[in-house]
Design a protein around this nucleic acid. Structure first.
Lengths: 129, 129
DNA sequence: ACAATTACGTACTAAAAAGTGCGATACACA
DNA sequence: TGTGTATCGCACTTTTTAGTACGTAATTGT
């Protein structure tokens, strides 16, 4: 394994959840275990190749767990590992911030649509005030 | 402004803080106002072009504020806007998660180095328990 | 005169990430 | 025999992102 150097923690995090698809995949998996086809339906624009590829990388990073059922047609399920679960709070906040931001932008006249608003409501919220 | 559609909030967030440099830049700016040259020293691998380009995009997204002092040689400072500040908690957590992850990986035998460990200690932390 | 300073732009190139199109498997069912 | 299912791999192309190399400005100090 080659020597690796980070300057600041966030670099290591973005290496794991960065890119066009990973954070989205993880946001879906944080609620449920899902099979490949469910993820594909939940993320319509992703291609099969990208989905598999990103899931493989997340697996290699110890974030998701892959479970294969030996049956035909195949059935493969993915869920977060313990390390993946430790991203839960971050994922929730990323979702919420994005939603709030979309609202602000819309209030300023931009034409934006948000298909699925996450209802995390009363989970690990700690809004001081 | 062209019509834009998101499926889930996190997409909008990653559009703003994604990419190789933005989250890193923001992590540095969350403590201080900094001028261009300070940022460059804080993030040694970034090129001048990338730094400027990313800052411009963050400015366009209303995340950072650019202040130009009319003097020679030029002096330009950047700081977070209110909207940028609203990312603070996320940025802290991204840093902390990365640090913890680096520790885990090192414990498993990987040869990793982390130059700057962030000491956010007692800021807006809310660890229940 | 000339270098150093600080911030930025622009044309061009290189590398990384994502997308397309195709094939494979192995069984069920018409 | 042929079609549908669910998952994945591979070769290839396109798009996006990042990096290189260079040039500008206006002033201070040598």
């Amino acid at each position: 394994m080659a020597d690796k150097t980070y300057n600041i923690g966030v670099e290591a995090t973005m290496e794991v959840i960065g890119g066009k698809w990973k954070a989205i995949i993880l946001c879906h998996l944080r609620h449920d275990t899902m099979r490949t086809s469910e993820l594909r339906r939940a993320i319509p624009q992703i291609t099969q190749k990208m989905l598999t590829q990103q899931l493989r990388e997340l697996e290699a990073d110890g974030i998701v767990q892959r479970r294969v059922y030996e049956q035909v047609p195949p059935k493969v399920e993915y869920c977060l590992t313990e390390r993946g679960e430790s991203l839960n709070m971050i994922l929730n906040q990323l979702c919420k911030w994005g939603e709030a931001n979309i609202d602000e932008r819309r209030a300023k006249g931009e034409v934006i649509e948000l298909i699925h608003r996450d209802d995390v409501s009363l989970e690990q919220n700690q809004s001081a005030s």
